[in-house]
Simulated assay, not measured.
Amino acid sequence: MTDVTIALDGRSYDVAIGRGLLEEAGARIAALKPKGVLHVATDATVADLHLQALLASCEAAGLRAVPHILPPGEASKSWSFYEDLSERILAAGVERGSMIVALGGGVIGDLAGFVAATMLRGIDFVQIPTTLLAQVDSSVGGKVAIDTKAGKNLVGAFWQPRLVLADLGVLDSLPLRELRAGWAEIAKYGLIDDPAFFAWCEANGKAALAGDDALRAQAVAHSVRAKARVVAADERESSGVRALLNLGHTFGHALESALGFDGQLLHGEAVAIGCCMAFDLSVRLGLAPLEDAQRVRAHFANVGLPTEPPAGVGDADALLALMQTDKKVADGRIVFVLTRGIGRAFVARDVSPDDVRAMLGDTLKK
């Protein structure tokens, strides 16, 4: 069992990592002293696998938990399901001391967190991430949001959880594709500023995804510590440090939006492709060596992640237009995270759209 503290002024919280945390969840949540009904947001797939264990744990701790089961998939991270979940919680009873528990992957975590941020002008919530991607990225750091027709995560808030419980045991029920999608976010931490960790990912990625429990625990803990350092230094992305976590995301979000969030491309798969694009653009601009871009692509391919956009994402101009709606646009210019090589990412605010268009055009021809 490992605890990582997210150190924030007056709002610090722990991320617990280990097996058996779902069975301990009730006691750990009770220690936070919630009042009234505990609202558990989850989706139908996760509910079938893990909801009863959580409800039994809450009952044993003397908590009254009411489940709110939503459809699985990115489509639930929308205005309509934000309204639906909010109305369900209001109907079941809520007060300022109430708490929402997000039991699920990134979609449930983002949606439930945004509802918590806006319910009665803000109530507490707990993250119990059930995917590898959510455990190493979206459940940590307090970014909560929903998607809109204009793009991904464009309506949201910074709202930190009170506690994160990353139960490694729930990962046993995940399909391999979901595990691979989470691995993209793990490898990303090495690509940003930790070349030694990326080398570790290259050496151990396949074994960790195949079920090596010790390697998987090491990957989750290292990733959470890496994100904890960044969030503590720049909680609201005001200094630019936290923006580095968006490596691959500007491209990846555009790909997801182009496909209408239809599930054809999981978020982690989009991030893997986006990281390859970020390295390709960096090579084109003379910033990074070609060998590093080839290494990144080879690692993602080796663990079974896609490295090229799927059919149906449109042309270069269409993708560039989607990037213009990204929330990181500043003064009308797209802000990219580029790199001078593995472990040397930086924020670039002066990239020519023509260079991006040319790189996209070459990529889409492959």
Rank of each mutant, 00 (worst) to 15 (best):
S139V: 09
T131C: 12
V140C: 02
D147C: 06
H39F: 02
P353H: 10
L32G: 06
V329F: 10
M359S: 11
A203S: 13
D194T: 11
P72T: 10
L259D: 02
L171H: 12
S80K: 14
A203R: 13
K227M: 04
E308M: 12
G156I: 02
I186Y: 13
G141W: 03
D43I: 04
V356W: 03
A199C: 00
K206Y: 01
A16D: 00
V46R: 12
Q218P: 00
H299Y: 15
G10I: 06
A345T: 06
L360H: 03
A150P: 00
A214H: 11
G26P: 07
C276Y: 03
L133T: 08
A53N: 12
G332L: 12
D137F: 04
A56K: 13
G142Q: 04
L55V: 13
S98A: 06
I69V: 15
D331Q: 14
V170H: 14
V351R: 08
A243Y: 04
W183N: 01
G105I: 06
A278P: 04
V313F: 13
G211M: 05
D292V: 06
A75C: 07
A348Y: 10
R242G: 13
N153W: 08
A214M: 10
M359R: 10
L85W: 00
A56Q: 13
Y189R: 07
A150F: 09
A25G: 07
